[in-house]
Amino acid sequence: MWTMSRRGWLQATGLASLSGSLLGAKLSGQTAGQGRHQAHGSHVMGTVGTPSLDAFNPTTFLRNWNFSELEPDARAKFYKETPRPDGTMLREYEIYAVDRDIEIAPGLFFPAWTYNGQVPGPTIRATEGDRVKVTFRNSGSHPHSIHFHGWHMPAMDGALPGQEVFPGETFVYEFDADPFGLHLYHCHTVPLKRHIHKGLYGTFIIDPREGRAPADEMVMVMNAFDTNFDVENEVYAANTVANAYMHEPIRVTVGRLVRIYLVNLTEFDPINSMHTHGMFFDVIRTGTALTPSERTDTLMLCQGERAILETTFRYPGDFMFHAHQSEFAELGWMGLFRAEAAPAT
């Protein structure tokens, strides 16, 4: 059977999108920079152009949780918080599964299974001791579930036999937010690797009661896509869209603490990693401590593993970050921080 190397495959699609751009440029009478790229195409890192952002915007996803990106009345449909007498919150979420074609690289659509139409699913964030109640509606074409990491009773696990939620059915998951840390949620219906890989996963943050130091916080989910169903990934990313943060660098401020909630939800490849240029960061593994346990510039995470990364930018300018598996980096898992001096006060 004819097979194509993974890199060859991305180059082919990259070329296709490049020629598409050239054609577009010609048609609109522009002679913009695309042609120059082609002359030394082998040196170009990343994709040409960007996907449509109206279905999923990686920059918006980065710094939003509990549907904070939505207008208040739209948000109210998916998230409600009610203070409880003991000072904790009841946090109620509406999560649904739906099949959706998502654009993971310019012009490249992946037939995903999603939570709330997006991959990764919405970030859920509670404080230690809160009650979390998630109404899950399966509007997808297959049985699904939500399996949350954290303390909960078996009935709330979503993974045991008989706990799959069939299309058209609803289930309510309810548990206390415990322990504080950086967790995840994902579908636990068999075949598991397919259900996760198709896009059914998200980040679940539980803040410590006493809170953490104020910081510029962001969520990065390392993920990948097997676009031809050969049990190997062809496209890698932080937050789904290959090279999204190369095209739109993550803006940060020199001297301000940055906290990254990093979750590995890559399937098929046993590990993934994050490496930052020109800096080191502190690591709180699984987020279950208040103080970091190590300092590094390259962190390896197994499937389902996660860590909180903290750093403070010293210098203004662009700083790359990417998987230190060079192959993943070149297949989309690469981005830029753009550090700017703090505004004068």
């Binding site: 449509s52 109206d54 279905a55 739906v98 099949d99 959706r100 074609d101 998502i102 654009e103 139409g117």
Partner: peptide, 10 residues
């Protein structure tokens, strides 16, 4: 008449 304005969902 139905017009589908949701990208990626049938």
């Amino acid at each position: 008449t139905l017009r589908n304005q949701e990208r990626g969902i049938i």
